Amino acid sequence: MKKIAIVIDSLVGGGAERVMLTLASEFLSMGHNVTIFSLKQHVTYQIPEALKLVFPFAEYNASVRGWFNRKKLAKMLTDAVNNAEQNGRFDMFLVNLYEAYRIVQACNFARCHYVIHNDFNSELAREAKMGPIKYFYMRKILRGLTGKRLIAVSKGISNALLTTHLFTPKQVSQIYNPTDHNFIQSMAAKPLTEKIPPKFILHVGRAAKAKRHDVLFKALQNVDKEYVLVCLSVSVKKLRKLSHRLNVEDRVVLPGFSDNPYQWMKHAAAVVLSSDFEGLPTVLIEAQVCGTPIVSTDCPFGPREIVGEEGITNLVPMRDPDALAGAINTVLARQSINLQSPLLPKLGKTSIANAYLALC
């Protein structure tokens, strides 16, 4: 039996969070011991009963993000880990997302692997547009990955890690995100208690800038008027304001966050992704498991790996609302059958869990 620690910024409805919970559930089913250290006390997902959940900064009232708090937070996290190791040391640490990277870099944990979920080059370029402070903050975190063991969730990210001049990893392993096909299909089969529109397309995700809801809403202006757009997101107020500004408020449905998006996926005419960058967008894989067509920007990285050669026509250039609307309308008009991703056979949760365990 292995003892595994997962360190992550929070457990609020995002793709990396869902991936780590799927992986943790599989570790537990295999008889291993798993503890998640969540830096923030924000949880929107259902947590498996056997999973140990620790909030190391529960008594820290300031923001986790900061230039000068790393030493203090590293000590608090170390204390929490030491407490959890009273009955045995962890065989592996899986570190996820930027604040977790920053703080764990200041800890003295052995057997650490940093899981890289997104195109870090595009994220850094986005931060540069937001000002030098944010740019240098993220750049400092990325440079701290020098000498670290990294896990890339797609081939695209793996190539970027191996060719970057920002830092020099000690090791780069490429492991895809796990997909629990049976769980997704069983959850999709559950009846929706909410009233659903008769014809709708679906987007799942927070209103982060990289998700480009502005492009999605502009595209909606030219999508078949019989269809509305359902956005499953924690960012209801932000998206409502944006939809009003872009004059599509009457065609955007905002039920809020759902820990079972698969019910919606099953009934959607298409699942749409409008991002500027990703890593391996889980929502596109989950949609295909539900038998739902997908339309996505051809962003780095993930969509092209997921759809394969047969699905290239469902990918469109980034930041092009007209192209996105055209691809959506094509899918809606032909009532396209779902093309199975060539990756699906490689994403079994047990084989992915074993790939992680092999790193121990």
Results as ranks from 00 to 15, higher is better:
91 D>Y: 06
28 L>I: 15
291 G>R: 01
55 F>L: 11
245 R>I: 13
217 F>C: 09
177 N>F: 07
103 I>P: 03
88 G>F: 07
12 V>D: 11
69 N>R: 12
119 D>N: 15
292 T>S: 05
328 I>Y: 04
177 N>S: 09
109 F>G: 04
29 S>E: 15
51 L>F: 06
236 V>S: 03
321 P>Y: 03
26 E>T: 15
49 E>P: 03
325 A>V: 13
301 F>Q: 08
261 P>H: 11
326 G>M: 10
145 L>W: 03
78 T>P: 05
279 G>N: 05
231 C>K: 05
4 I>T: 02
271 V>C: 07
323 A>Y: 05
239 L>I: 12
221 Q>H: 11
289 V>A: 04
162 L>N: 15
181 H>V: 15
258 S>Y: 00
217 F>N: 05
275 S>G: 09
93 F>M: 09
246 L>Q: 09
283 V>K: 02
81 V>Q: 05
248 V>H: 00
229 L>W: 08
283 V>F: 05
13 G>R: 08
187 M>C: 12
208 A>N: 12
254 L>M: 12
24 A>Y: 02
99 E>S: 09
192 L>R: 08
212 R>S: 13
351 S>H: 10
197 P>A: 14
42 H>F: 09
295 V>P: 01
257 F>S: 07
284 L>A: 06
191 P>Q: 09
138 M>Q: 13
185 Q>H: 08
92 M>T: 14
157 I>V: 15
261 P>R: 05
204 V>Y: 04
336 S>W: 03
143 R>F: 03
109 F>D: 07
134 K>G: 02
205 G>Y: 11
